[in-house]
Amino acid sequence: MIAWWQIALLTLYAGYQILDELQIYSAMSSPVFAGFVTGLVMGDMKAGLLIGAAMQLTVLGVGTFGGASRIDANSGTILATAFSISSGMKPAAAVAAIAVPVDSIMIQTDILARSTNTFFAHKIDKMVDQYNYKGIERYFIAGALPWALSRMIPVGLALAFGGGFVTNLAKILNTSWKWLGDGLATAGAVLPAVGFAILLHYLPVKKHFAYLILGFTFTMLFSTVFGNVQLLGTTLAGVAKGFTTSFNGLSMLAIALIGFAFAAIAYQQTTSGSAGGGANAGSGSSAKATDEKGEIEDDEL
């Protein structure tokens, strides 16, 4: 069961996260943070982090392009984590069984919020005509309501009334329909591939394909080595009592630093390549650009 205070806290967070994403974008509106918070509230941080990580990777390339509605990974992560912990469903299965369907349903409430705000935009037009400055600001701030409620209402209702259904579902997936439970867990493990593929579509892969191979090969080799050493360590520790050293896994931060070094080299090459005649080239291009801009504004410059 999910306690009332847990429902209240998670519902509040569901409202906060969309406002955070729209405004300060602090990364507290990311699926991995949503998993972390929900895990803490539900008393199992690790399960939350696991589900959050899987959803984070699944939506890795899905940015907010041009204000298009997109899959709402945060609400899905909140529900999947809360129900996974309260009903005993495997985290990987919860990603595919709860988070993904919830995410896609929530696209509709996102569209509803954006439509509702059109109403406030027209109210603001009226206030402009009446020189009602407080009114303009009031109706603008009111836009926060459709945004927050579009997340809080579905998440709150689902948490309050969905528990029984999900508990039964978890029971079936763990017993008579185990093939489906395992399948959903496998799907949860494959889903990050979608995020990576979307990201590749967005990045200039053809231009930088060599770095794709480098990133893959470096990491593949190191993770194989690190993984095998870890396996060796645990096996040895099981056999020999005197062996107490434990080995850590591959640090992704280290891999990111290698990538950063490649990026830094490329940046230095492009800037030094043209900045050799730095000032001249700069002023030349700016003169050209002001000419282009000239059609828009010729009196200001």
């Binding site: 990050p192 200039p204 990026a263």
Partner: peptide, 19 residues
């Protein structure tokens, strides 16, 4: 340009570890 290089590199790294 530099950021996209790092992005592509990281996707390669992720494919190798996170699936």
């Amino acid at each position: 340009n530099a950021a996209t290089i790092m992005g592509v590199f990281m996707v390669g790294a992720l494919v190798a570890t996170m699936i």
